[in-house]
């Protein structure tokens, strides 16, 4: 019995059948105001400004590898 419950738990977790936030509970998450990168053209440009004016780089959610244009 315990082994069966364990099996069900593992399968359910791995398959995503029952995530703790259900698909029908994701209305807020799907809202555009919850997007980390709503407009890539605008966020890429601001990351470029930061990298050109600051000594630090990376781990700020931007993709790519910089332009080597400091």
């Amino acid at each position: 019995m315990i082994r069966s419950l364990l099996l069900i738990t593992v399968v359910v977790l791995a398959s995503g059948c029952s995530p703790w936030v259900k698909p029908y509970e994701r209305e807020n998450l799907a809202d555009e105001i919850m997007d980390f990168n709503r407009d890539p053209i605008a966020s890429n440009y601001l990351h470029h400004v930061y990298e050109a004016r600051e000594g630090a780089r990376g781990a700020d959610g931007a993709s790519g590898g910089g332009c080597g244009c400091n």
Binding site: L13, A14, G16, C17, S18, P19, W20, V21, P23
Partner: peptide, 8 residues
């Protein structure tokens, strides 16, 4: 990029 656990 890979999503897991019901895309959470």
């Amino acid at each position: 990029s890979q999503s897991f656990f019901g895309d959470l």
